[in-house]
Write a protein that binds this DNA or RNA. Sequence first.
DNA 1: TTGTAAGCGTTATCAA
DNA 2: TTGATAACGCTTACAA
Lengths: 341, 341
Amino acid sequence: MNRKAARATISDVARAANTGKTSVSRFLNGEQHVLSASLRQRIETAIAELDYRPSQMARGLKRGRTRLIGLIIADITNPYSVEVMSGIEAACRAQGFTLLMCNTNNEVDQEQHYLNLLSSYQVEGIVVNAVGMREEALSHLQQSLLPMVLIDRKIPDFSCDVVGLDNREAGIQVTQHLIDRDFQSILFVTEPLGLVNTRHERLEGFHTVMAQHPAREAAQVEVAINDPAGLDAVLKDYTQRNAGRRCAVLVVNGALTLQVARSLRRLGLTWGSDLGLLGFDELDWSELAGVGITTLKQPTRQIGYSALEQVIKRIEGDDTPPQEQVFSGELIVRKSTMAVE
Amino acid sequence: MNRKAARATISDVARAANTGKTSVSRFLNGEQHVLSASLRQRIETAIAELDYRPSQMARGLKRGRTRLIGLIIADITNPYSVEVMSGIEAACRAQGFTLLMCNTNNEVDQEQHYLNLLSSYQVEGIVVNAVGMREEALSHLQQSLLPMVLIDRKIPDFSCDVVGLDNREAGIQVTQHLIDRDFQSILFVTEPLGLVNTRHERLEGFHTVMAQHPAREAAQVEVAINDPAGLDAVLKDYTQRNAGRRCAVLVVNGALTLQVARSLRRLGLTWGSDLGLLGFDELDWSELAGVGITTLKQPTRQIGYSALEQVIKRIEGDDTPPQEQVFSGELIVRKSTMAVE
DNA sequence: TTGTAAGCGTTATCAA
DNA sequence: TTGATAACGCTTACAA
């Protein structure tokens, strides 16, 4: 229990095993077949004796391989991000990498800071979870010379590996469900579209289906996520305009769904009876929210896992053109989009 | 955009600035006052020119200070853990440390793995978020010789810095609220108590208040978090036994509150009218859950922040006896514990 | 099969 | 005020 006990070094082990550093190094790096049984044995016990663990710092310095991956997250409080992270983390474990976690808290200068930091720790690759990230922040990332994989969202005019949901398909899927459930008017609520491809694609899926049903009304509106009053106004207006008609709200992501649910609460509107409600992203409270909310669940963990695998491919030298990897979502039907009785 | 551009080293900078490495090093380490203005200027431009960033690997190797902190989390999907993490991360940023994140996923051997890993990266300290961690896993941690701070929970028979909620006070606070709201019987639902001090302390607070109200019934029960059927049985039995009486369920933590809410749903019981419901830990859906759920909110971010500050104190040599740092919770009253009309 | 020595990019020591 | 030079703990030619 000696707190000051300096860590044993490879030299210590060599000395204890009565041999040179080289042999110890060989032992550590799986070249055990070149060692005599007796030497191997001596080294093994010396290592155990001294509780020796090689310094990754020294290793990284020498070989240039740190086995470190940087993870940049814009908003760690977003449940979607956390699940993705969990998938990334699992993949890291499986592949022998370690995560340096960087939460930019959606501050653009923090991102710059972390990019420098990661580079100074010589991470071998970077995964960027762009969920909730501002557009300006995204474009900064182009500077990085390291292998990089984006999650969820592309950077406009920058070619880079991306892993995420098949947004267009998902948009079609959810809209079709609402059509099937006989909603006559559907309001697509999104955060400002900007250049965010995921929002555009989901919306596109929506319009693709709506175009096939000219009798139904397709409405759309952009709201800021931190403007509850604005949201209240939008929803109030929409429902009043559609009084007596079977209408539904389709929300572009989970964070916004939470806001919409709160707003409906404030307005005294009950989803499932007063209007339909469907949101992208599964939330753990979906089924508890008064009446359960129908959601489109993304295979989040798998997305994270695949993203990491892709970075590693790049690290290992794969230089095929940047690719886009999309996964299908799963519609989880609850009572907020109940069929007409 | 040359992908192969090797990173500039301190020697490159020295050469470009027409000086020696020592001066560059001095420049980097804030000993700028010893440098002549002209030299300082040359170095500055050289650094900018080459986009030089010192290698933390080499630094760590040389100085033994890596500015790395290890974070061990048992369950990254727990919202409480995430918020705490967010606080830790903020503190890291403020203090110039970087987080190595390790999610053990509640597997004991993973913990061992990560402990070794952190040590091999020569982290300077470790923060353990014990929330949701199994008891056996906790006791493993004693091995670590590094400065270590525990969050939320103590290790039995092991003296170590701990940061968390004032559990006893919180237990009193919530129980008193239920008493004030005139509930005649209260069921304290907890995960198996084991040696988990937080559960014991919260329960103790409960009994402290209940003892002052002998006319009320104080019930308690231990349930496994992954046994919905068992939970259903417990809650059904309890409510039937107390039919016609004003009764409430008090849940020991947020994860379990989610399970209890689901169970009540299955049983067709509505909190706020059929019975009272109060849970430790604030959850972002608390207010949306049919009737809003009254919760005891922990200052999670602050807990994380303080934990990191404490580790750093230790890293910087503070060797006062291990201390326990507790924070007060905040009761957020919603309709699930409505007063009698 | 084993060992010696050079060097990865820093910082610390010492001398100029 | 500056700059060689020797470590830090490891891997990797190269030698033996």
